[in-house]
C-alpha cells in the first residue's frame, strides 16, 4: 500500500496544491485502495496487486485537462527531498551531534584538566622548571583540546552546509511525512530518557561538590570542581547528541519548535552576539585571576555565574521582545 501512496504522491508532486486537486487525490487513493484490497482478497500477492493497481491507473494528464489545470512550472515549486537525502540528512545530523558534543566535552574537560594540574603541578618546582612555567602548564592541554574542538566545529559546519538549500522550505510527499512522523515518535521516547539522564547527572553533580568542599575541605574543593565538570561533560554530551537528532526530525517536519525558532531568528542573532562577547571575557577573567592572582581555587565560579547571568539575559530578552 505504501508503494501505491508514494506512486500517487509522485503523480501529484508537480501539480498545484489546491483543495480541488486534494479531493481528486483522495478519491483516486480510495479507489486504488479498494482495488488493492479486493485483489489481495482474491489471492494475489502484494507485488501482483500493486502491479495491477499501478498498471490500471492510467494517465494523470487526462484528469488535469478535464479540470483545466496547467502543470506547474518546476521553478516556482519548492525543491523536493528524495528518500536518500532524508536518510542522509538524519545520519549527517546524528554524526554532527556527536562531533559537536565531543568538541564541547573536550573544552569542558580542558578546563577541568587545567584546574587539576594547577592543583598538583602549579606553583611547584617540578623537574627544575620555574614555578612561573609550571603555573601555565595546565594551559597547554586546554589549548590543544580547544584547537581540536574548533576544528571539529568547522568540519561539522561545512558538512551540514550542503543542506542549506532546504532551509527556505521544501516539499515532503505524504508517504515521506508519514515515515518521518513514525520515526519522530519512536525517537521521542529515547530523547525523553536521554534528557532525564542528563538532568539527573547535573542534579547529582551538585551534592558531589558540596561533599568535596564542605566535608573534606581544602584542596579537595578544587578536586570537587574537577569532578563536577566531568559529570557536566557527560550531561552536556548527552544533551547535544540527542538534541541534534531531535532537531533533524523537527526541521524535516517543520514542527512548532522549528517554526518558532525561525521566527526568533533575529533574536538569536542578538543573543549570539552578546554570547560572543561575554564568554571570551569570562575566559579572560578566569585566566588572569588564575595566572596573575593565583585564585584557581575559586575563580572557576566565573563560569556558572556567567552562565546564570547570560541565561537570565537571553530569557528576559526573549520575553520582552515577544
Amino acid at each position: 500500500m505504501e508503494t501505491i501512496i508514494s506512486y500517487l504522491d509522485n503523480m501529484f508532486s508537480r501539480l498545484p496544491k489546491t483543495p480541488e486537486l486534494e479531493q481528486v487525490r483522495q478519491d483516486l487513493l480510495v479507489n486504488m485502495q479498494d482495488k488493492y484490497e479486493a485483489l489481495m482478497r482474491e489471492g494475489s500477492t502484494e507485488n501482483e496487486a500493486i502491479g495491477i493497481v499501478i498498471a490500471e491507473f492510467g494517465n494523470i494528464d487526462e484528469i488535469i485537462e478535464e479540470l483545466g489545470y496547467q502543470q506547474s512550472q518546476s521553478q516556482d515549486a519548492l525543491p523536493p527531498f528524495t528518500d536518500q537525502e532524508i536518510e542522509q540528512f538524519i545520519i549527517e545530523n546524528r554524526k554532527a551531534g556527536k562531533k559537536i558534543g565531543l568538541g564541547v566535552s573536550m573544552i569542558i574537560l580542558g578546563v577541568a584538566l587545567l584546574i587539576f594540574m594547577n592543583l598538583y603541578v602549579g606553583g611547584q618546582m617540578i623537574l627544575g622548571l620555574p614555578t612561573e612555567l609550571t603555573d601555565i602548564l595546565g594551559l597547554i592541554p586546554l589549548f590543544i583540546l580547544l584547537t581540536v574542538a574548533i576544528g571539529l566545529f568547522i568540519y561539522t559546519g561545512s558538512r551540514l552546509d550542503q543542506y542549506k538549500k532546504f532551509e527556505h522550505g521544501f516539499e515532503l510527499t505524504s508517504a515521506q511525512r508519514h515515515r518521518l512522523e513514525m520515526g519522530q515518535q519512536s525517537f521521542a521516547k529515547v530523547y525523553t530518557t536521554a534528557i532525564i539522564i542528563g538532568v539527573g547527572l547535573c542534579v547529582l553533580a551538585i551534592p558531589t561538590l558540596i561533599v568535596f568542599s564542605i566535608l573534606l575541605g581544602g584542596s579537595y574543593s578544587q578536586l570537587g570542581t574537577v569532578f563536577l565538570l566531568m559529570i557536566v561533560t557527560i550531561a552536556v554530551y548527552i544533551f547535544i547528541v540527542y538534541g541534534k537528532q531531535k532537531e533533524a526530525y523537527d526541521k524535516l517536519l517543520k514542527t512548532d519548535a522549528f517554526a518558532k525558532r525561525q521566527e526568533s531568528d533575529e533574536h538569536d542573532r542578538i543573543v549570539g552576539a552578546v554570547a560572543a562577547l561575554v564568554w571570551p571575557l569570562a575566559i579572560v577573567i578566569f585566566l588572569i585571576s588564575g595566572l596573575v592572582y593565583h585564585q584557581w581555587h575559586i575563580n572557576w565560579i566565573i563560569f556558572p555565574v556567567t552562565g546564570l547571568l547570560f541565561g537570565g539575559f537571553s530569557g528576559m530578552y526573549h520575553a520582552l521582545k515577544r
Binding site: N31, M32, E56, F57, G58, E62, I63
Partner: peptide, 14 residues
C-alpha cells in the same frame, strides 16, 4: 475492457 482509474475519474468530472 478495463477502464483506467484516470479515465473513470475524468468521465465523472465531465
Amino acid at each position: 475492457y478495463v477502464m483506467k482509474e484516470t479515465t473513470l475519474y475524468s468521465a465523472f468530472t465531465r
